[in-house]
């Protein structure tokens, strides 16, 4: 028998700190595989967010930096502008990117920075204990919306991908999900495309929004959490290549 699937070298061979069924581990693997398949480990610099994925550098074996909450696109800008030959990617959660870092992603996108942004949307702040995120669904119960999010009280879930599509500086925006084998495979293609665009020198920012399960703070089993992405999240966050098809 031949080995047809194994851990890719850029994904360090160590346990993660993530909860059982968390999507971060899958997303990390897709990025690591992309880096190895494109052969760019030696010129890639990754940016870890504040949030559950703050320790991403413990899992991804590339040069990495951990930055202040939400500021990854600004840090990426500083890196890419001074190192145009390097491949710069940020990995950000919804609290990081859509809440405190909304300004930074908007302007990096607006300037058309040649960076790749992997945006993990799990509709909740995980690291701090399951508080409401800008992407939290209406009626979703969180630590800070104990009766469920209301449009009147907290506003509607923020559609980051749709927002970035409107900016001339973005060249590729796709929303994917980790909700099934097929969707994971599709997410891999999207991530790889986003890296390839940067590698080709395409002028602009690419963002892949990934709907990712947080079984712990959705208070669902891992399997049910996957179902919930498809039954609930994709209704508000429709999947697809929103800008710049591949």
């Amino acid at each position: 028998m031949k080995t047809v699937f194994e851990r890719t070298p850029t994904l360090k061979d160590c346990p993660t700190h993530y909860c059982p069924g968390c999507g971060h581990g899958i997303a990390h693997r897709l990025i690591a595989e992309t880096i190895d398949e494109l052969g760019i480990r030696g010129r890639t610099i990754g940016i870890a967010p504040v949030g559950c994925a703050v320790l991403a550098y413990d899992y991804l074996d590339v040069d990495m930096i951990e930055v202040a909450h939400g500021r990854a696109p600004a840090v990426a800008t500083g890196m890419k502008r001074t190192n145009p030959d390097k491949i710069i990617f940020s990995y950000q959660g919804d609290g990081d990117l859509a809440s405190i870092g909304a300004g930074e992603i908007l302007h990096a996108g607006h300037r058309g920075e040649q960076i790749t942004v992997i945006f993990i949307n799990n509709a909740v702040f995980g690291m701090t204990g399951g508080q409401m995120a800008p992407t939290t669904m209406l009626e979703q119960v969180t630590a800070t919306t104990p009766k469920g999010r209301t449009a009147a009280g907290e506003g509607y879930p923020l559609q980051v991908a749709e927002l970035l599509v409107t900016l001339p500086g973005t060249i590729y925006v796709e929303r994917c999900a980790l909700s099934s084998v097929a969707q994971v495979r599709n997410t891999k293609k999207a991530i790889k495309h986003a890296f390839e665009l940067q590698l080709s020198g395409a002028q602009g920012l690419s963002l892949v929004e990934v709907l990712s399960p947080c079984p712990t703070y959705w208070r669902l089993s891992p399997a049910k959490a996957m179902e919930w992405i498809e039954s609930h999240m994709t209704k508000v966050f429709p999947l697809g290549q929103l800008k710049g098809g591949r």
Partner: peptide, 29 residues
């Protein structure tokens, strides 16, 4: 390899007879 694709810990190795192409899978698009 469906199991390996969704495994968050990336701890499943998959081996296969023959060409290495998927013979039966819940295929994906």
């Amino acid at each position: 390899a469906a199991c390996a694709v969704v495994c968050p810990e990336a701890i499943i190795e998959v081996l296969r007879e023959g060409s290495g192409r998927v013979i039966v899978a819940i295929e994906p698009g």
